[in-house]
Amino acid sequence: MGAISKARSQAADAGKFVADWMEHRAGVITIMEHFLYEPVPKRGAWIYTLGSATLFLITLQFLTGILLLFYYVPTTDHAWNSIYYIMNEAYFGTLIRGIHYWSANFLLAVIGLHMAQVFFSGGYKAPRELNWIVGVVLLLLVVIIAFTGYALRWDQDGLWATVVGMKIGSYSPFVGAYTIQFLMGGDTIGPATLSRFFAIHVWLLPAALAPFIGIHLYLLRRHGVFGDEMEYRERMAKLQERQRLEEYEEYEDDGEPYVGRRDRADRD
């Protein structure tokens, strides 16, 4: 037995130990299995990745947004300058802000594709109506986050887009004017507007977005993306049964007792 293969088997043992330890105490592997494994039809399986693509882009937004906060200053006299600093002085500033900007743009496009896929495949029908509704809430949250993010640049482009957006909103019956005054922090656009848009863009709506993403994923796993609930349960049952049998076979050969369910990576 060579040193490398010994080290490898030791590492595998250690990994197995950690996985077992976590599984017994927190059921981590069961949760991972439940979240990662999903039977989908072989044909056109790529279309089912649009939701994951959306989640990936939102995650990118969170991560790059947190990074940008290390330099961005939400005041009227420093906002533009701080972004200028990010773009010209900070290490990889162009990359980080570029990812934030472009993944925000792609996010809206991918959400559109994701919704189109769900719509044309009838994925919104019973029992998945609630997930469609939660999805629409997520869409609205993302749109408002995109709108408020635009103003944070505090350049001509962002400012006038914000003015136009708020004027459109102000025509809403009854609540329009009050909503816009709430957003602006007064009766004109100004320093208060930037502070408020910052608070909404960075804290309020992302904090609201996160639990709705959780509900969206929970409902997705409850009903599956494909087939009805019964079909899905049958499939999962068959899959788990097959895995169990495979494991039994393996451990019978080794003469080791069966300890717990392990994932595929452990067995190799």
Binding site: Q181, F182, G186, D187, T188, A192
Partner: peptide
């Protein structure tokens, strides 16, 4: 700000 503008009739300018 909404209270200032609508109830107290204040303006930012």
């Amino acid at each position: 700000p909404v209270i200032d503008v609508n109830v107290r009739g204040e303006s930012d300018v």
